[in-house]
Design a protein around this nucleic acid. Sequence first.
RNA 1: GCCCUCGUAGCUUAAUCGGAUAAAGCAAUUCCCUUCUAAGGAAAAGAGUGCAGGUUCGAGUCCUGCCGAGGGCACCA
Length: 541
Amino acid sequence: MYFSQIKELIKEVLGERELRIPLNEKFGDLSLYLSKELPELNFDFIEKVEPVNNYLNIFIKKDILFESIISEIIKDEKREKKEKVTLEYLSPNTNKPLHLGHLRNAVIGMALANAFKELGYQTFRINIVNDRGEHICRSMLAYQKWGKKETPESMQMKGDHFVGYWYVYYSQRETPELKKEVHTMLKKWEEGDKETVALWQKMNKWVYQGFKETYQKAELSFDKVYYESDLYRLGKKIVKEGLDKGIFYRGEEGDILFDLPEEEFGLNKDGSDKKIILLRKDDTSVYLTQDLGMAVSRKRDYDFDRSIYVVGLEQSYHLKCLFFILKALGYSWADRCFHFPYGLVYLPEGKMKSREGKVVDIDDLTDKMQELAQKEISKRERVKDQDRSLKIALAALKFNLLSIQPKQEIHFDPKKSIAFEGKTGPYCQYSLVRALNILKEKELTKEINFSSLKQGKEIVLVRQLSLYPEIIQKSVDTFNPSLIANYIYEISKTFNQFYNLCPVLKAEEETIQARLALVKAFSIIMKKGLTVLNIPILEKM
RNA sequence: GCCCUCGUAGCUUAAUCGGAUAAAGCAAUUCCCUUCUAAGGAAAAGAGUGCAGGUUCGAGUCCUGCCGAGGGCACCA
C-alpha cells in the first residue's frame, strides 16, 4: 500500500478536516485538529492514536510508514496529461546586457514551468525579446552618432555589453533635441527605412550573440523566442479593429485611446477619468500595442488554457490594463491570463538603473561566483575544475534567488558575496553527493524489511519526503517556487542529521538495506527538486 | 490624492493555504574529522512578529485604522 492511499483511507473517515504531517517526531505521522468528537479509526496499519492538546496524533506502524512512503517514491509514476500552460519570462531588451533582475525573473519562471510540468501540465516557456521601440533607438542613435567605427571586437566587449555601452552613452547626454531624433528614428524604423533597419539588424545581431553566451553559461532556457518586431504590426491591427468596433476612440490629437472604468482603475490625481494610449498619433506603437499582438498570437500558436506572465511587481497596473482590454475586445481567454509578480532587486544605493550603468551584470556575477567556488574547491583539493566550479556557483546563485518569496524585494550587496555554506545551494548539492556516494557502495535488494528503522531522524526524514507532491502542487497554486527551494533545504538538513547519527554501511545487514532504501528515496526527491529548480546536480564536490 | 507589495532575532530569510513551545542561515561562544567527503554535525545564546483595535476555541497569517519602506497611476518599457 502507498502512503497516499493510507492518507485517503483516513481522510474518508475524517471528512473535510485537514490532515497534516507533523515534522516534530513526538507528534504523529499524521495529525489533525480536533474540535469535539473523536473519530473512530480502525485500520490495521495504525499503531496508536493519541489525543493531545486538542490534536489527534495518528501513529502508523513504523514498517508500514517507511514501506508505503519509500515504495511510492521509488515507483515509476505515470502522469496524466493536463492542460496547456504558457509561461513568459526573461523578456530582455536588446539595448543592454542581462542583469540580476533578469536572472531572478528567469530562474523563478523556469522553476514554476518545471513545477507545472512535474504535475503533468504541458508547458511552453516563452521568451519575448523586446527588440524595438524608442529605448532600442537610443543605443542605435548613440552608436550612429558617436561610435560608428567601433565594433565589439574593436572595443573587446561582448556584443550585448557593447550595445549597452552606447545606451548608457546616450542616456548620459540626453537632450530634448536628441529625444526628437530618437523618435524620428523610431518612425523611420517602423516605415522600414533601409539604413535604419540595417543598423538595427547589425546591433541586434551583436546583442543576440552576447545573450546566447549568457544563456549558456547561466543555464537559462526556453522553448520559444518571440520578437516584438514580428508582432507589433498585429498589435496595431488589433488596435485599429478595436477602433472600428468603437471599443477604442481617437483623442483630440489623433492618438488612439481607451477609457478605464473608475470601479476597476480609480481616477487620476486631478479627479479625471483614467485612459490609456494604444497607438501614438503618428501611428507608432507603444508597449501596450505590441503586448496585445503578443497575447493574441500566443493564443493562436498554443491555444493555451492558462497564460502566465512572469513580470515584475511594478508592472501590475500595466498587466491589469492589458488583461482588461483583451477582455473588452471580446477575447474570453483574457480570464485565463495571469500575472506572476515578483519584487525588484535593489543595490545598496537603490534600484538598479541600466541607463546609469548601475547594475549587477549576470556575466560578471557568474564569473565572480565561479572564481569563489574554485577557491572553495582549492581549499579541499588541489585541482582546477571549470565544470564543477560553475555548477557550484550557479547553485549558490540560483538557490539564493529562489529561496526568497517572489514578492519579497531582494537587497543585493555586491560587496558581500553569496555564501557556499549554511542555507545555500551548495549545501543541498553536497547533501545529495553524500547520498549518492553511499548508494554507489552497495546494491539495493528488492525485498526490504523496514522494521529496523526507528530513529527519530529516520522518521522525520521519511515524513518530510512524503510531502514532495504537496509542495509542488502548492508552489504551482500560489506561484511560489520558493516553497520548493526551502523544502529541498529542509530535507537536506534532516538528511545531514541522519547522516551523522545513523551510519548506513556500517549497520547490521538488515538495517543497511532499510537505510539504503531511505537514502535512495531521499536522492530521488533531491534530484527531482533540484531539477525543478534548475540547480545543477553533482556527483562529487 | 488613489492603488499595489512588504514590515518577523543584530543582519538575511522561514513558518505545512488560521493551528502544537514562531523556525533556519549568517555573525558572536563552545564541542566533534584513525568513522559512508567537516561545503557537515552537536550544544548554548538571541525575536513574541511595526503600532492600536477587531473577528475566532485559536492570528505572524484574516478585517479596520495609523506608522514606516518600496513600487505604480496615458505617448518609458
